[in-house]
């Protein structure tokens, strides 16, 4: 706790999530630590199953029923994991807002988008007219044409891009200090992806809101993130400033990711899949979870789990051979 940087808005310390699947339990998140600074964008990246969405949901305690958590989620000097349910509800939406992955599923099909966006201001006791004016302003801010028309539309009457803009407007409605965006562009087509991403990046700049961006898409991260947290099998593999992490990875997994994404490192137009299958957090390999797929694997990697260590100020890697990883 003493080494917490004073600027950190959110500081996650040794976060653990244990899920039960039938008779077996799995530590799906194993001692996750990272921080999000005010006004910056932190990217949470990894393959599916790496625990990035689970991490995001654990911050606001929206995990599936039966999940057990340990560790600390420091939110402005306050541990949310130890906070009362009432306090957590105060934080949700009004201090930390979430933009969910698939807006068609994440929006209530039987309520107009205006009602859903205006829910927080309405519950805060604003008058009908004030709520409507605020929603119209929000719709305009997220670039929805003709807000007067759209405010009374139902989610299914909008396009995918507009639905995601509605989600963003909903997240902005509580004037949060941190927005968690969980794969905000995955459900969208490529051109819409770019526009929604530009909107999210622009909002962060204009509003000064911090952003925690969860994505499996390294190109998205390369464009938007200031800091990167690379996750593998429920653990942090590497973290640091985004440009530095992408340009000179300190973990073989990050290097493999970067080398396999066309526009970031190589000239090939198609992403090559990473060799081997992603590790299952319920059945994690001993030692370093990445060792079965790692080209640099040594005997030590098979037995000893590497701890996340600071290589240089701001650069962390959980690899025994971090110093030997070349781009």
């Amino acid at each position: 706790m003493t080494d917490r940087p004073p600027t950190a808005l959110l500081d996650v310390e040794d976060l653990e999530v244990v899920l039960a699947a039938g008779a077996t339990t799995g530590t799906v998140l194993d001692r996750i630590s990272f921080s999000v600074d005010a006004g910056r964008t932190t990217g949470l990246i990894g393959e599916s199953g790496s625990g990035k969405t689970m991490t995001a949901m654990a911050l606001v305690q929206l995990l599936p029923a039966g999940a057990r958590t340990a560790g600390h989620v420091w939110w402005r000097e306050e541990d949310l994991l130890g906070a009362r349910a009432r306090r957590v509800r105060q934080v949700r939406g009004r201090e930390i807002a979430v933009i969910f992955q698939d807006p068609l599923q994440a929006l209530n099909p039987t309520q107009t988008v205006g009602r859903q966006i205006g829910e927080i201001p309405r519950r805060d006791g604003l008058s009908r007219d004030a709520v409507r004016a605020k929603v119209l302003e929000l719709l305009d801010r997220v670039g929805i044409p003709d807000p007067e028309q759209r405010i009374d539309a139902y989610p299914h009457e909008l396009s995918g891009g507009q639905r995601q803009r509605v989600m963003i407007a909903m997240a902005l409605a509580g004037e949060p200090r941190l927005i968690i965006a969980d794969e905000p562009t995955t459900a969208l087509d490529v051109t819409t992806q770019a526009r929604v991403l530009a909107l999210i990046a622009g909002l962060r700049e204009r509003e000064g809101t911090a952003l925690l961006l969860v994505s499996h898409d390294l190109r998205v991260m390369a464009n938007v993130a200031d800091d990167l947290v690379v996750m593998y099998a429920g653990r942090v593999a590497e973290r640091g400033p985004a440009r530095a992490v992408l340009d000179s990875p300190r973990h073989p997994y990050t290097r493999a990711l970067a080398n396999n994404v066309p526009s970031v490192r190589t000239r090939s137009a198609i992403a090559r899949p990473l060799p081997g299958a992603p590790a299952n957090p319920f059945d994690r390999p001993a030692g370093c979870a990445f060792h079965p797929r790692c080209p640099l694997v040594t005997d030590r990697c098979r037995t000893e789990t590497p701890r996340l260590r600071e290589l240089e100020p701001g650069r962390f890697s959980a690899c025994h051979l971090a110093e030997e990883v070349t781009p």
């Binding site: 599923q105 994440a106 099909p109």
Partner: peptide, 10 residues
């Protein structure tokens, strides 16, 4: 999913 969204609004 939208129930989780509702919870995320506090």
């Amino acid at each position: 999913s939208f129930v989780r969204t509702a919870r995320s609004k506090g």
